[in-house]
């Protein structure tokens, strides 16, 4: 079994003349929850776009499950489940129709699709909303549908790009608990970007991205101990003020 799910080596990207990411190196192992913390504009969404190949890196490489993502595009995309920052559900289609569309894009057969939709809707407590139009769901339920959709094809790596933004505190807490449980129960790796510091838990693997560079990759509680701080907030503030030095 491959323990390292994603390996990023000296990744760089720029929009025109503007360097957005430089010299990013990361290693993500299976079954772990990685919190990618950084302010708005730090390059989190760009990093996600590079991982899911909406953009191509200017330098460096990405390996998913041991294979280069640019050489093995289809393989790499099959391993990924993605929840984008913007809502991407079709509001006028039902929950099931949205999931069926995603399953077809993954090339999943009809029987498997029906089975997986049933499983994921039950897991996220959405079975009774299957025939409802997405437009009729509240923000929390829509996000749950997006996560269920991202898990439909059983990816190895789930990317969550600010997936809890706009949700109320209770819904965010419930969703975060649920997602961490997925790592244990399914062995799935989660890379979740956020600028909401309270979402990072001591047991999480913490990645801090500042000004397009990775300033820290360490287990959160270990990082707090080594910096002599008691909360993630203090840790982040300290890193932010020192520019990550």
């Amino acid at each position: 079994m491959i323990d390292e799910v994603l390996a990023i080596d000296q990744l760089g990207f720029q929009y025109g003349e503007k360097q957005v990411l430089s010299d990013i190196s990361l290693s993500l192992n299976s079954g772990k929850y990685y919190a990618l913390l950084g302010p708005n504009g730090a390059g989190k969404s760009t990093l996600f776009s590079l991982i899911c190949q909406l953009l191509r890196p200017v330098s460096g490489s990405l390996n998913l499950m041991g294979k280069n993502t640019q050489k093995h595009t289809r393989f790499a995309l099959k391993q990924l489940g993605i929840v984008f920052q913007q809502p991407t559900l079709d509001l006028d289609l039902t929950v099931t129709q949205n999931l069926q569309y995603h399953a077809s894009l993954q090339g999943m057969s009809g029987a498997l699709t029906r089975q997986r939709i049933e499983e994921e809707l039950a897991r996220f407590g959405l079975a009774d909303r299957a025939k409802d139009k997405v437009r009729a769901l509240n923000g929390g339920h829509r996000r749950r549908v997006e996560i269920a959709r991202a898990l439909l094809h059983k990816p190895k790596l789930l990317l969550l790009d600010e997936a809890t933004v706009g949700l109320d505190q209770n819904t965010r807490d419930a969703m975060n608990t649920h997602l961490r449980a997925l790592c244990d129960s399914e062995g799935i790796t989660i890379l979740s970007s956020t600028h909401l510091i309270d979402e990072v838990k001591p047991n999480d693997e913490l990645i801090v991205l500042l000004n397009g560079q990775v300033k820290l990759q360490q287990r959160c509680e270990e990082a707090m101990k080594s910096l002599g701080v008691e909360t993630v907030q203090q840790l982040y503030r300290q890193m932010h003020m020192s520019g990550g030095q």
């Binding site: 995309l77 984008f84 920052q85 913007q86 991407t88 079709d90 894009l105 993954q106």
Partner: peptide
């Protein structure tokens, strides 16, 4: 603009086919 294009473009099928 709304982001749903990304769902199509991150399918493992070849982009030209999509």
């Amino acid at each position: 603009e709304m982001g749903s294009m990304k769902v199509l473009l991150t399918s493992p099928m070849p982009r030209s086919f999509l």
